[in-house]
Amino acid sequence: MAIRLGRGVAAINYPTGMNLGGDPTQALVHSTPTGNFMVTLSSVDLGQGMKQIMAQICAETIGVPTDRVVVDTADTDTGPHCMGTFASRGTHRAGNAVIQAAKEARQVMLEVAAEELEVNASDLETDGQGNILVKGAPQKSISIFDVALSAHFKRGRSISGRGMFLIPRSYPEKETGAMKPSTCYAHACTVAEVEVDDETGEVTVLTVKNIFEIGRALNPKMVEQQLVGGSWMGISHALYETTEPYYPNRDHGGTDFNQYLMPGPGDLAETEIIVLERPSADGPYGAKGPGEMCANPQIPAVANAVFDAVGVRIDTLPITPERILRALKAQAAN
């Protein structure tokens, strides 16, 4: 009877979105009379930072500072259509829709500015600070504030745009089953080191080293926080969490947070996060969806580490002491 060390590795591809019906998301962008921009969506920010990212995407596309953009995630009764925030699709789908809407709004904004400055709209550029300049003659300029006032009160224009993301529905080929169920893929690899007590079956995760390839990180600190939290959640899925430990028998399922186990602040493995950025061709400014996949590779990595430590394959989650001891017993019997 001993504490045995093990190390496991796992690598994953993770699809962004789910193309079973076009996967649509729509967005509307309009300016207020003072040249702030409103993004209206039905997509939900549930803590992953959707509002911040959509504000950044809209600001970058129109050419204004991010704090000039307000994002209203409204609700599904009143907002533009969104399939939902799932399948790591939020940034990619809503982001593409916001870019399209913001481009249309930017075009109207430049047309109004062109009328005010008596130049061609195609000769104008934005400075990212809230001004529109004539290319090559930046002394000739107008603030977006003044452009919005002109549009609203003088020229009767709506500085607004409509955007949507929609891809053709992909049906499987009859012969091969091949299909294209998603767009770009994110990737991850995890190496986990564990200690397994072969007397009690208890697993302690010592280190988790993760590398994630997520397209371009539109907000690197927010990406990092999601990956750190996701890595913890992956360990939690691997070793602790289940509502029905003896599925389909409901007996012994957790009924509250005392019984539904998750690692607490005292149970944290040493965690490392490395981000690789390979911008995707179809993503908004190169982004992919890192959301769900950040909690995926830890699970097979821990299962492999347990195998490395004590030589048993646990193929049912979570990898509980009971399952390890039963497997060890079966192994000894053989």
């Binding site: 939290g229 913890w232 944290l268």
Partner: peptide, 10 residues
Amino acid sequence: ICRCTGYEPI
């Protein structure tokens, strides 16, 4: 209990 952060940032 926290569901999102993995506790370390807290």
